[in-house]
Design a protein around this nucleic acid. Structure first.
Lengths: 113, 113
DNA sequence: CCGGAGGTTCGAAGGTTCTCGTACCTCGTC
DNA sequence: GACGAGGTACGAGAACCTTCGAACCTCCGG
């Protein structure tokens, strides 16, 4: 696990389990977050910038789950925290998964275009 | 929901939730079963033909989860039950999902070929 | 007709998940 | 220095998941 200044510990990609990933993506709140990250530009994003209708402590919980499932990297910058998708690493280990899930979720409520 | 002779009730594909699907696939036993079905020939298969190291009642539970998540169709034939992947229907609603998950799982322990 | 294989239902135990509130920490700003 | 925004740690509650065994059902084969 890396331990850069402010970087919260994350598992190596090799140690990440598909079951954990699917569980992480099964939660609507977490999936919404991942979705936004997937069709973002890949740069860091403030954790506080996600409009989740849940308590602060619950968010902390969800960030931990996403981190431990190998989906995101999280940096603690004192007064705020930031997340970044582990895009390339993740894609190398679970090819196509993010795109497929993102594609399915994005297709929501737009059956025939 | 359909109610053919022996066909256990299943949700219409439209009513199936991605979260439920991902949860269903998150379990190793269920994922193993789906995997076998995916690279099978699409024909019906006896429920008893899956080598799951769990109790009978636990199997029943897992089959229900898979059914209710929209992944399989199950037929009760008196002395035995049979399952079939809802391949095309599922593919139409969640394009690519099964292939991606199957691909990832199959890639296990064969990094460079 | 009896036994066994295959299944379901029920209830229960043990673990995990999601949620929250409270207390506490750390910065930047006034 | 005090305040507020953003976060974490901890504890607790409710709900759910996986698992099992026991009791029961339904057929097919001998």
């Amino acid at each position: 696990m890396s331990s850069m200044p402010g970087e919260l510990p994350i598992p190596e990609m090799a140690a990440v389990d598909l079951g954990a990933v699917l569980s992480a993506l099964a939660d609507p709140h977490r999936r919404a977050v991942v979705l936004e990250l997937v069709d973002g530009d890949g740069t860091e994003r403030a954790c506080s910038s996600f409009p989740l209708p849940i308590a602060k402590s619950t968010r902390t919980h969800h960030w931990r789950v996403l981190r431990e499932a190998g989906l995101v990297r999280q940096r603690d910058a004192g007064n705020g925290t930031f997340v970044r998708l582990r895009r390339d690493e993740f894609e190398a280990k679970f090819p196509g998964l993010l795109d497929v899930v993102a594609g399915i979720s994005t297709a929501r409520s737009a059956p025939v275009r």
